[in-house]
Simulated scan of single mutants.
Amino acid sequence: MSAQAGRDLLLKLDETASGAFQTVAGLRARRIAFNASLVDITTAESAGQWRELLENAGTRSANLSGSGLFRDQTSDAAVRSLFFSGGLRPWQVIVPDFGVLEGPFQVTALEYAGRHDGEVTYELALESAGALAFTAL
């Protein structure tokens, strides 16, 4: 995969869980991380006392974060409403020339900031809340 502009990564929300995704905001910085916990099954009889892990037994998760400008009042209101309700909704993360990650997420952090001579910015954090699907592009 060749180098790509960070602005090409898109974060989209399906506010009504109907399959219609809309770009949420003008993100200036974004990050996605995948995590997996381990299940250690090492015993005194493990070969050479090396750690042994149980295959496919750990918990997997993903978290997303971003900062930037909301596209409009509607997208700002949608994300803010999800934060205060604690609701779970389908989100998409589109990485051009790589793939699309889709699944339920919860908004776990929402911060607003602004300078007296600039625009209002936000920071957003999402945590996976169920099975995620990845489709290669």
Rank of each mutant, 00 (worst) to 15 (best):
M1L: 15
Q4R: 05
A5N: 11
G6V: 00
R7T: 14
L9F: 13
L10C: 03
L13A: 07
D14L: 04
D14A: 00
T16H: 10
S18E: 14
T23C: 03
V24T: 02
A25H: 00
R28F: 08
A29F: 04
A29D: 10
A29L: 05
R31D: 09
I32N: 03
A33T: 15
F34N: 09
A36T: 12
L38D: 05
L38T: 08
I41Q: 03
I41Y: 00
E45D: 11
S46R: 02
S46T: 02
W50E: 13
R51F: 01
R51E: 10
L53P: 01
E55D: 14
E55F: 09
A57N: 06
S61N: 07
A62L: 09
N63G: 10
S65Q: 02
S67I: 04
F70C: 10
R71L: 15
D72F: 10
Q73F: 08
D76R: 12
D76W: 10
R80Q: 09
S81A: 15
S81Y: 00
S85L: 02
R89D: 01
P90D: 14
Q92F: 03
V93I: 14
I94K: 05
P96L: 09
P96I: 03
D97R: 12
F98N: 06
G99M: 04
L101D: 02
G103P: 12
G103W: 06
F105D: 00
T108F: 09
L110Y: 05
E111M: 11
Y112Q: 14
G114R: 12
R115H: 12
H116E: 10
E119C: 06
V120Q: 15
E123F: 01
L124R: 04
L124I: 13
A125E: 13
A125M: 08
L126I: 09
E127T: 07
E127F: 02
G130T: 05
A133C: 04
F134Q: 09
T135I: 10
